[in-house]
């Protein structure tokens, strides 16, 4: 007997599993840089987060949803890695596991598993930790190549933290116990390579861009979201910078610091929580960019990327309704 199937009888070798595997490969450069810069602590955080996410996914899908093993689609590994990328290397293990629980159990599986969640799981995990444990989440070990095995390293402020602090000082109501000044800012080259304080995966623009190039080459994502997100941030800060001349608006610093690169390349492009049509993606990315700049410049937090993307995640169903592709034979004269 022959197999009978409906057309098409050929299908693309790309599956959810291979797409997710490609994303994991794309995350590797940043993971390697994290270990090089932050030492063994970074490895510990990444392994804990991945193990935690995979374990929670396995337990929920097997014992709560009774739908078999969904771990094999590799998506939990990505969530784990992205969550780790958003944490400082000194994060205590039990807190990381709390973040994994928030990401996988609450944000993803409670909504029905892969494809059904409204918000980016890793970002919800990060924001939850950020609000619950503000001290640990803003305890940024200084980068150091020398002390590879030493987890008890010096800490300092992030680039955006310094800029925020400078801002506070200039408005003459300074709480000057922060001890950071403009002199502590890394150079552009250091920022590009990743030799600065910050979350594990966000520091090296170079490594993240390598990951982007790989994902574009493998057709995992399209260029629209990263490009329009980064371009919006760059253009808006550029306007501020040109008008005021204030260093806190320096567009290159904004582009290379904080979670922007990580967010624009790996978080905002998450399939499940981003729009499906190209026009929708562009609109989504521009809004993410605007919100990021507004939060960074006017919010009480130095960082804006996580909140910007989470806020825009909520608008995705609406964007998908409004921004639909042009149907052949319609909408033109």
């Amino acid at each position: 007997m022959f197999t009978i199937s409906t057309a098409p009888h050929m299908n693309s070798p790309v599956t959810t599993q291979t797409l997710m595997r490609d994303v994991i490969i794309a995350l590797m450069p940043a993971a390697i840089v994290a270990v090089l810069i932050f030492g063994i602590g970074a490895l510990k955080v990444m392994l804990t987060a991945v193990a935690g996410c995979v374990l929670f996914e396995y337990l929920v899908s097997k014992y709560l949803l009774h739908r078999g093993n969904t771990v094999t689609d590799n998506s939990a590994i990505i969530t784990g890695l992205l969550l780790a990328f958003n944490l400082p290397s000194s994060m205590p293990i039990w807190m990381i596991l709390v973040g994994c629980f928030m990401a996988i159990v609450v944000t993803k599986m409670a909504f029905g598993g892969l494809g059904k969640n409204l918000f980016n799981p890793a970002l919800v995990g990060r924001v939850f930790l950020f609000i619950s444990f503000p001290v640990q989440m803003t305890h940024w070990p200084k980068p150091s190549f020398a002390d590879f095995l030493n987890t008890d390293v010096q800490t300092g402020a992030t680039v955006l933290g310094i800029l925020k602090h400078v801002d506070v000082q200039s408005s003459a109501t300074a709480l000057s116990n922060q001890g950071a000044s403009l002199a502590d800012l890394p150079t552009y080259t250091e920022m590009f390579l990743g030799y600065m304080g910050g979350s594990l995966g966000e520091v090296s623009a170079l490594a993240l861009l390598l990951g982007l190039a790989y994902m574009l080459k493998r057709n995992v994502i399209t260029w629209h979201i990263p490009f329009f997100y980064l371009a919006t941030v760059f253009v808006v800060t550029c306007v501020f910078w040109l008008v005021t001349g204030n260093i806190k608006y320096d567009p290159l610093t904004h582009l290379l610091s904080g979670g922007l690169m990580l967010g624009a390349i790996f978080m905002a492009t998450d399939y499940v929580t981003s729009p499906m049509s190209t026009n929708g993606k562009i609109f989504f990315a521009i809004c993410c960019g605007l919100l990021t700049v507004i939060i960074r410049l006017y919010g009480s937090y130095p960082e804006g990327v996580s909140f910007a993307i989470l806020i825009m995640n909520a608008f995705v169903p609406l964007i998908d309704k409004i921004f639909v592709p042009r149907i052949y034979g319609t909408g033109r004269k």
Binding site: G115, S277, Y328
Partner: peptide, 28 residues
């Protein structure tokens, strides 16, 4: 052959939008 037709099992939609990108009629 089986190697060519490969009828893999259906999994959950991940909203990647690839079907929207490839539809030559601009449908969703």
């Amino acid at each position: 052959s089986k190697e060519l037709t490969r009828h893999p099992a259906e999994t959950a939609c991940i909203r990647c939008g690839k079907c929207v990108d490839v539809c030559p009629m601009g449908l969703r």
